[in-house]
Protein backbone atom coordinates (compact mmCIF):
# COMPACT_ATOMS: atom_id res chain seq x y z
CA UNK A 1 0.00 0.00 0.00
CA UNK A 2 2.77 2.41 0.94
CA UNK A 3 4.84 2.05 -2.26
CA UNK A 4 1.63 2.47 -4.25
CA UNK A 5 0.75 5.65 -2.39
CA UNK A 6 4.28 6.97 -2.90
CA UNK A 7 4.07 6.20 -6.59
CA UNK A 8 0.73 7.97 -6.88
CA UNK A 9 2.14 11.02 -5.19
CA UNK A 10 5.21 10.95 -7.42
CA UNK A 11 3.05 10.75 -10.55
CA UNK A 12 0.89 13.62 -9.30
CA UNK A 13 4.02 15.60 -8.52
CA UNK A 14 5.49 15.03 -11.95
CA UNK A 15 2.22 15.96 -13.58
CA UNK A 16 2.00 19.12 -11.59
CA UNK A 17 5.66 19.88 -11.99
CA UNK A 18 5.04 21.47 -15.34
CA UNK A 19 3.00 24.26 -13.84
CA UNK A 20 3.75 24.44 -10.14
CA UNK A 21 6.82 26.11 -8.68
CA UNK A 22 6.50 24.52 -5.24
CA UNK A 23 7.88 26.06 -2.08
CA UNK A 24 9.81 23.47 -0.14
CA UNK A 25 11.06 25.83 2.50
CA UNK A 26 9.78 26.94 5.84
CA UNK A 27 11.16 30.45 5.84
CA UNK A 28 10.54 31.09 2.18
CA UNK A 29 8.80 34.35 3.04
CA UNK A 30 12.18 36.10 3.22
CA UNK A 31 13.19 34.98 -0.26
CA UNK A 32 11.94 36.29 -3.59
CA UNK A 33 10.50 32.95 -4.65
CA UNK A 34 9.35 34.22 -8.05
CA UNK A 35 12.90 35.30 -8.97
CA UNK A 36 15.57 32.90 -10.17
CA UNK A 37 19.20 33.92 -10.21
CA UNK A 38 22.11 31.80 -11.42
CA UNK A 39 25.21 31.77 -9.22
CA UNK A 40 28.34 30.49 -10.96
CA UNK A 41 31.38 30.21 -8.77
CA UNK A 42 33.39 28.09 -6.37
CA UNK A 43 32.29 26.22 -3.27
CA UNK A 44 33.80 27.70 -0.11
CA UNK A 45 31.82 25.45 2.23
CA UNK A 46 29.45 22.56 1.63
CA UNK A 47 27.47 22.07 4.82
CA UNK A 48 25.45 18.88 4.67
CA UNK A 49 23.48 19.40 7.90
CA UNK A 50 20.01 19.52 9.36
CA UNK A 51 17.70 21.37 9.62
CA UNK A 52 19.02 23.18 6.50
CA UNK A 53 21.94 22.50 4.21
CA UNK A 54 24.09 25.49 3.31
CA UNK A 55 26.39 25.91 0.35
CA UNK A 56 28.67 28.94 0.67
CA UNK A 57 29.59 30.02 -2.85
CA UNK A 58 32.13 32.61 -3.99
CA UNK A 59 31.25 34.25 -7.27
CA UNK A 60 34.09 36.13 -8.97
CA UNK A 61 33.58 38.77 -11.66
CA UNK A 62 34.21 37.58 -15.17
CA UNK A 63 32.81 37.25 -18.66
CA UNK A 64 29.25 35.95 -18.62
CA UNK A 65 28.95 36.46 -14.86
CA UNK A 66 25.93 38.48 -13.74
CA UNK A 67 27.46 41.43 -11.89
CA UNK A 68 24.86 41.38 -9.15
CA UNK A 69 25.88 37.83 -8.22
CA UNK A 70 29.51 38.74 -7.50
CA UNK A 71 30.43 38.10 -3.88
CA UNK A 72 30.10 35.38 -1.26
CA UNK A 73 26.64 33.83 -0.92
CA UNK A 74 24.96 31.55 1.59
CA UNK A 75 22.67 29.35 -0.50
CA UNK A 76 20.28 27.57 1.84
CA UNK A 77 18.75 24.21 0.99
CA UNK A 78 16.29 21.95 2.75
CA UNK A 79 16.82 19.04 5.09
CA UNK A 80 19.45 16.45 4.18
CA UNK A 81 16.64 13.88 4.18
CA UNK A 82 14.63 15.68 1.50
CA UNK A 83 17.66 16.64 -0.57
CA UNK A 84 19.00 13.11 -0.30
CA UNK A 85 15.91 11.87 -2.09
CA UNK A 86 16.64 14.23 -4.97
CA UNK A 87 20.08 12.72 -5.41
CA UNK A 88 22.23 14.91 -3.16
CA UNK A 89 24.57 13.44 -0.57
CA UNK A 90 27.29 14.60 1.79
CA UNK A 91 29.93 14.29 -0.95
CA UNK A 92 28.07 15.87 -3.88
CA UNK A 93 30.23 18.97 -3.57
CA UNK A 94 33.25 19.92 -1.51
CA UNK A 95 35.23 23.07 -0.87
CA UNK A 96 37.07 24.14 -4.01
CA UNK A 97 34.61 22.59 -6.49
CA UNK A 98 33.21 24.75 -9.28
CA UNK A 99 29.44 25.06 -8.90
CA UNK A 100 26.44 26.52 -10.68
CA UNK A 101 23.32 27.04 -8.62
CA UNK A 102 19.94 28.50 -9.44
CA UNK A 103 18.34 30.05 -6.38
CA UNK A 104 15.82 32.60 -5.11
CA UNK A 105 17.61 35.60 -3.56
CA UNK A 106 16.76 37.25 -0.25
CA UNK A 107 14.19 40.01 -0.63
CA UNK A 108 16.24 42.41 1.49
CA UNK A 109 19.26 42.27 -0.79
CA UNK A 110 21.45 40.35 1.64
CA UNK A 111 23.90 37.81 0.30
CA UNK A 112 21.67 34.78 0.75
CA UNK A 113 19.39 32.72 -1.42
CA UNK A 114 17.08 29.72 -1.32
CA UNK A 115 18.31 26.82 -3.42
CA UNK A 116 16.19 25.79 -6.39
CA UNK A 117 18.58 23.48 -8.22
CA UNK A 118 22.21 22.87 -9.07
CA UNK A 119 23.42 22.41 -12.66
CA UNK A 120 25.96 19.61 -12.82
CA UNK A 121 28.95 19.46 -15.13
CA UNK A 122 27.02 17.21 -17.53
CA UNK A 123 24.16 19.70 -17.70
CA UNK A 124 21.76 17.64 -15.55
CA UNK A 125 19.95 19.25 -12.65
CA UNK A 126 19.99 18.41 -8.97
CA UNK A 127 16.85 19.78 -7.41
CA UNK A 128 16.46 20.79 -3.78
CA UNK A 129 13.00 19.19 -3.53
CA UNK A 130 10.17 18.11 -5.83
CA UNK A 131 9.58 21.58 -7.29
CA UNK A 132 10.29 21.93 -10.98
CA UNK A 133 10.45 25.03 -13.20
CA UNK A 134 7.35 26.39 -14.85
CA UNK A 135 7.03 25.09 -18.38
CA UNK A 136 8.27 27.58 -20.94
CA UNK A 137 5.49 29.14 -22.99
Amino acid sequence: MKPMLSRMILVAAMAAAAVVPARAHHSFAIFAMDTEVTYKGTVLEYRWINPHTHIIVKVDPGPGVDARTVGTWDIEGGSTNIMGRQGWNRATYKAGDPITLVAHPLKDGGKGASLFYAIRADGSRLYHDIARPKQAD
Partner: peptide
Protein backbone atom coordinates in the same frame (compact mmCIF):
# COMPACT_ATOMS: atom_id res chain seq x y z
CA UNK B 1 7.11 17.38 7.35
CA UNK B 2 10.46 19.00 6.42
CA UNK B 3 12.21 15.64 6.72
CA UNK B 4 9.78 13.02 5.40
CA UNK B 5 8.36 15.31 2.72
CA UNK B 6 7.05 13.31 -0.18
CA UNK B 7 8.58 10.26 1.44
CA UNK B 8 9.79 9.19 -1.94
Amino acid sequence: LPYIGTGN
